[in-house]
Design a protein around this nucleic acid. Structure first.
Length: 479
RNA sequence: GGUCUCUUAGUAUAACGGUUAGUACAACGGGUUUUCAUCCCGUCAACGCGGGUUCGACUCCCGCAGAGAUCACCA
């Protein structure tokens, strides 16, 4: 049997990272089993619809490399993939239920329903609408909601993550199938769509676990085969024990993209949050994830979202891209992350800067704060120089003469490259008798005025002879 | 309140009856000719509680406690 999975988000805003995992797992399973991955937009709630949200969802999936076989843009044999365009399909299935006596139009006004509900909660008994079924039900027509007519009984099913499940008849109820505005509820629409689209594995958050018996009843009444159920545990907010949500400041995946997180790292982190392959591997490529993914290794308890680990992984990935694919490969990812002043410099120079700073980056946006002095003259801040914990030990005259000696030595260099610079620095050390910490800190700060920078000889090589010497001279003059 | 689920260090996880309970992030300490980082080495730190079953239990069973989900004309 060919595996078919889907990601079925609602276009109610950006999808935060807690939700993208619900796209990653179905994607991995589909690719591993050479099946199909469908993207379906569940836009039946017109009140919560947000303009542009669909594009945001598509962007997120594309950024992560989660391509879909059927859905918006690409189309497919089960089009349309927007629920709002599938109304006739839902109404067709709804009529079948009416004909078989398993659905009824409910004329009860919402206020009345609310009253029933209140009465139950006051007397601490579970609210079940089927105990309040209206005596007379009109013919179904627009403006009247359609309810399922439950036939309560126990249910048993298997969840690929949670195991064998069973419930009693007390959870079955007359759920709304079609709202009074004619749009189907999620409860009804997803079942119809999954069946029509041939979805074999329904993967979604655990919050739907409690509703599953009602879905089971619906599959029966519609005479549809049950799919496999895969409940995904929640991702928890950094604080507390609540599911991660936008209120906790959960960022969207695209925000991380704009902060300079690589999609490889994001995918890696999210995939491994609540899943593992049983080995001690930490870094996975997308292909490795596809190969190793398995439902039975999905964790069944919630996993806390830990941005620190994501950033660590991102650092690992930044280095991995550089080391395995080369400086240019990483450079192509840095567009938009350089300081503004970098615009005046060519690609070649920026690749060099990247090559000596890349192992210090946690995110690409660090480039903005870390590389300023490569692209514009730093402000001479003598306090920063004098208060440095190593330079503090030197007297003002020592500083002056050390700078002069350094300038003389570096000016005399015939060739200006990392090796010759390192040799010159070593000579300076032995000639002055100073510790590396003292001499190197002095030169380093004089040419960068940054709290930290790459190795000194590499920094000087990239800056070039003219810039290095003119900065040293400027500092020597102002001492 | 009903129903259902979950429970290994601060965090993510390994173990599927027999281990000094492993790994990673974080924290802390140290090393690599300056700084920051990388890299390397080390330290700290966990089986929620109580009963069983068993020669033996983190692993199986039963209670309890704690945490979470759900009970919408939202998904």
């Amino acid at each position: 049997m060919k595996i078919v999975t889907r990601f079925a988000p609602s276009p109610t805003g950006y999808i935060h990272i807690g939700n993208v995992r619900s796209a990653i797992y179905p994607y991995l399973l589909a690719r591993q089993q050479k099946g199909k991955f469908i993207l379906r937009i569940e836009d039946t709630d017109r009140a919560r619809y947000v303009d542009g949200a669909t594009e945001l969802i598509e962007d997120t999936l594309k950024w992560l490399g989660l391509d879909w076989d059927e859905g918006p843009i690409v189309g497919g044999p089960n089009a349309p993939y927007f629920q709002s365009e599938r109304m006739e399909i839902y109404h067709r299935w709804a009529r079948k239920l009416i004909e078989s006596g398993r659905a009824y139009a409910d004329p009860t006004p919402p206020e009345q329903v609310e009253e029933y509900r209140k009465k139950c909660s006051e007397s601490k008994i579970p609210f079940l609408y089927r105990n309040f079924r209206p005596e007379y039900t009109p013919e179904w027509k627009p403006g009247i909601p359609l309810r399922f007519k439950a036939e309560p009984k126990p249910y048993e099913w298997h969840d690929e993550v949670m195991g064998d499940m069973h419930t009693g008849p007390e959870v079955l109820d007359d759920i709304i199938l079609i709202k009074k505005d004619g749009y189907p509820t999620y409860n009804f629409a997803h079942i119809v769509d999954d069946a029509e689209m041939g979805v074999t594995h329904v993967m979604r958050g655990v919050e739907y676990l409690s509703s599953t018996p009602n879905y089971l009843a619906l599959y029966e009444a519609l005479n549809l085969p049950r799919p496999k159920f895969v409940s995904l545990p929640h991702i928890l907010a950094p604080q507390g024990n609540k599911k991660l949500g936008k209120r906790d400041g959960a960022k969207s995946a695209t925000e991380y993209r704009d902060d300079g997180v690589l999609p490889e790292a994001m995918l890696n982190y999210l995939a491994c949050l609540g899943w593992n392959d049983g080995t001690e591997q930490e870094i996975y490529t997308k292909d490795e994830l596809i190969e190793r993914f398995s439902l039975n290794h999905i964790q069944n308890s919630g996993a806390r979202y830990d941005e620190t680990k994501l950033l660590w992984l991102n650092g690992q990935w930044l280095r991995r891209v550089f080391d395995e694919q080369g400086a240019n490969a990483l450079y192509t990812r840095t567009n938009g992350f350089w300081p503004e002043t970098a615009g005046n410099y060519d690609d070649n120079y920026k690749v060099k800067v990247l090559s000596i700073i890349y192992d210090r980056l946690k995110t690409l946006s660090d480039l903005r704060s870390m590389t300023g002095y490569f692209f514009s003259e730093p402000n001479i801040d003598l306090d920063l120089l004098i208060n440095n914990k190593f330079i503090k030990k030197l007297s003002e005259s020592e500083i002056e003469s050390l700078l002069k000696q350094s300038i003389a030595k570096l000016s005399s260099l015939k060739s200006w490259n990392a090796d010759s610079l390192q040799a010159a620095l070593n000579e300076l050390l032995s000639e002055t008798g100073k510790k590396p910490a003292e001499l190197f800190s002095l030169i380093r700060i004089a040419i960068s005025f940054a709290p930290f920078s790459p190795a000194l000889h590499l920094t000087m090589e990239v800056l070039g002879r003219d810039v290095t010497l003119s900065r040293l001279n400027a500092v020597a003059r102002s001492i």
